[in-house]
Design a protein around this nucleic acid. Structure first.
Lengths: 147, 147
DNA sequence: CGTAATCTTGACCGGAATTATCGATAATCG
DNA sequence: CGATTATCGATAATTCCGGTCAAGATTACG
C-alpha cells in the first residue's frame, strides 16, 4: 500500500496546525487558514480531516469560530498513525497482511514483512512535533518563502 | 511508489529460476515452466522478464530450446534491484525523488526519505539466493504442496 | 529448407484507486 | 436571525494496475 497524497497533505496540515496552536492557544483553527498557508485544496483537506477526526487525531468544533485542534500533544502523534488513518497500515505487499495468495512455502514473504517492519519503525518513531522542530530548524537557515 | 504484483511475481519467478538452474545447469529455462510451477500467468511473466532482461538481471536465448538464465549468481541479485527494475526505486512519496512540490521548507520530506532508506536497506540486503535458502528451510519443515 | 518452439514488442482493455470537486445540510456563535 | 464553519454524499477526471491479445523475430532441429 502506498503513501498517498492524502497522507502527505495530512502530515503537512497537522504540522501547520501544531504551529498555529503554538502561537494562538485555545482557539480552534479554521481549515481554510491551513489550506491557504500550505497551498492545498480546501475541499480535499476537508475529506482528510474527517478521517483524522474519526481516528481520534484531531477534535473539531462546528459553527462560527469553529475549526480543528489536535486531540493530543503534537509529540504524541506519530506519522505512522496519520498514514494508517488515511491509507491504512503501509505494507509493501499483501503477503504481510496475513493472507498470502501463494499457499506453498514462498520465501519471498519474509522480505516484505521485514520491509514493512522497517517502515513502521521509521514512521512510528517520528511525531508531528519532531517535524515541526525540523521545519523550524530549516527555516532558521534557508530564506522564508512563506508570505 | 508501491511494490506491485510485477515485482512480487519477479521475485518468486527468479527464485524458481535459481532453483531449476541449481539442478539442471547450463540449459536456459522456459518461462512456461516457471509460470506453471508457480501458478503465474505466462503472458504477464513475459512482460516481467522483458524488463528483467533490459535491467541486466537475466539473459535470454531465443528460439526453440531457448529460455532465460540468471545473468549473475543468485547471491549477487538483490531484491532491491529486481523491484527497481519493475516499479522503480521504491519510495513512499515523490519528495524523495528530488523534486518536491512544496518549495518552502517542508519538514515532512525528511521522514519519507528516512523511510525510503530503511526500505532500501532491507531490500538491498536480501538476495535471491537468500530467498531460495529460506524456501528450502521452510519446505524441510512444512509439507510440500508442489506437484 | 521448413516448421515448431520460444522470446520480443507493442497495443489494448476493464476495473479499481487516486485526487479531487460540487452541492446540500447541520451545528454554532454573535 | 444570519454568517460561519464543519459534515456528508455524490460524482467526475485522471491515472495506474493486472492481465490479455496479436503479430513478429530468432533459433533449433529434423
Amino acid at each position: 500500500m502506498n503513501i498517498s497524497m492524502k497522507s502527505r497533505y495530512a502530515v503537512r496540515a497537522l504540522t501547520e496546525l501544531a504551529r498555529i496552536e503554538q502561537s494562538q492557544s485555545g482557539k480552534p483553527v479554521r481549515l481554510g487558514d491551513i489550506a491557504e498557508r500550505r497551498g492545498m485544496p480546501l475541499q480535499f483537506l476537508e475529506q482528510v480531516f474527517a478521517s483524522l477526526r474519526r481516528a481520534g487525531i484531531v477534535r473539531s468544533r462546528r459553527g462560527a469560530s469553529g475549526g480543528y485542534a489536535l486531540a493530543r500533544s503534537a509529540d504524541e502523534i506519530t506519522v505512522l498513525e496519520v498514514v494508517a488513518a488515511l491509507d491504512g497500515v503501509p505494507s509493501p505487499a499483501e503477503c504481510t497482511q496475513g493472507r498470502c495468495d501463494q499457499v506453498d512455502g514462498c520465501g519471498a514473504s519474509s522480505v516484505w514483512i521485514e520491509a514493512q517492519q522497517a517502515l513502521e519503525q521509521v514512521l512510528g518513531g517520528t511525531t508531528i512535533g519532531d517535524l515541526l522542530r525540523r521545519e523550524d530548524a530549516q527555516r532558521a537557515v534557508a530564506p522564508m518563502y512563506q508570505i
